[in-house]
Design a protein around this nucleic acid. Structure first.
Lengths: 133, 133
DNA sequence: ACCGGGGTACGAAGATTTTCGAACCACCCC
DNA sequence: GGGGTGGTTCGAAAATCTTCGTACCCCGGT
C-alpha cells in the first residue's frame, strides 16, 4: 500500500537470510549484475529473472529482506539498487568475495610473480584460525 | 550401504549448494566449529546440532554434498573433517570470509593505526568493480 | 478522465526442505 | 557370539519456499 515499501535496517538482517537469498541462481545473478553496474542501480526491467510479474516481485522481496537491495520507485517502472556500502559494513567482504567467485572482479591473488612475503598476513590460502595452541 | 559414503569432487559442487548449506544456522555452526579446531576434524558427537539421529545425519549429508566436509569412520563413532584446502581452492576466500563474519578470526582490516596506504589494492570497503568506464 | 504499463499483496497450488521413526548395518566390548 | 552404541537409509508427515493468477495501486500519456 505505501508507495515506498519496507526495507530492513542492515543490523536486523541475519546471515542466514543472506545465504538463503544468495542460494538461488537468479537472485545471485541480480546481485552480481547490480554490482557490475557503475551506479549499482538498474531498472528491474533490465534484470534477467524468469517468471511472472508476481514471481519476479517475490524475488525482489527476498533480496530486499536480506538487506541486499533497495527498491526505488521512478514514476513509471522501478529500479533496484545494491546496498553495497551498508551491506559491506554489516558483512565485511561478503559481497567482494562473491564478485571474485563469480569472476566479476579478478581474484585478489594471482600467482605472485616474484618476491614471496613470508612475513605479514598472506591474503591467500586457507590460513588456519587456530594453529594448534 | 558402503562403509564409506559418497563425497563429491569439489568441482561438481555448485555455489548454490554451498550457500544453501550455509543458510542454516546449525549447519553453519558445524562449519565454524570445525574451522576453529586445529585439526579441522571433530567427532560428530561433539557437534551441537539438535534433533534425532536421522536429522543430524541429514545435515551431515547436506554439508557433505556441498563439498564442505568429509565423513570418516573411526571404528566406533565417526568424525567430520572440514575440506578446508580443497574447498578454498574451489571457492577462494569464502571460508576465510565466513570465519571473519562469525568472529572466529579477526577482521583483516582494523582501523589502521597509522600510515594509510593509498597506493595498492586496499583490501577493505566495497571497491567498485567497474568504476564508471 | 480513461487506459495501459509496471509493480505489490494475497491466496492457493506445487515443489522442495526438514524432521522423525523404523529398519538395518558395522564396530567394540564382555 | 550377543548386546549396546553410533550411524545410514527409507518413507511419510510437517513446514517452508516458489510460482502463479487475481485484485489492486500508482503514474504517465492521450
Amino acid at each position: 500500500m505505501p508507495v515506498q515499501m519496507h526495507h530492513p535496517s542492515l543490523d536486523e538482517v541475519a546471515l542466514s537470510a543472506v545465504f538463503a537469498a544468495l542460494s538461488d541462481d537468479h537472485r545471485r545473478g541480480v546481485v552480481v549484475t547490480l554490482a557490475a553496474d557503475p551506479d549499482r542501480e538498474l531498472p528491474c526491467s533490465a534484470l534477467s529473472v524468469p517468471g511472472s510479474k508476481s514471481t519476479r516481485s517475490y524475488h525482489w522481496k527476498v533480496l530486499r529482506e536480506a538487506g541486499l537491495i533497495v527498491q526505488r520507485n521512478t514514476g513509471t517502472g522501478m529500479t533496484l539498487r545494491l546496498r553495497a556500502e551498508e551491506f559491506d559494513a554489516r558483512f565485511p567482504g561478503l559481497l567482494t568475495n562473491l564478485l571474485h567467485l563469480e569472476g566479476i572482479t579478478p581474484a585478489p591473488e594471482g600467482p605472485a610473480p616474484e618476491g614471496p612475503a613470508p612475513e605479514g598476513p598472506a591474503p591467500e590460502g586457507f590460513t588456519e584460525p587456530n594453529p594448534r595452541t
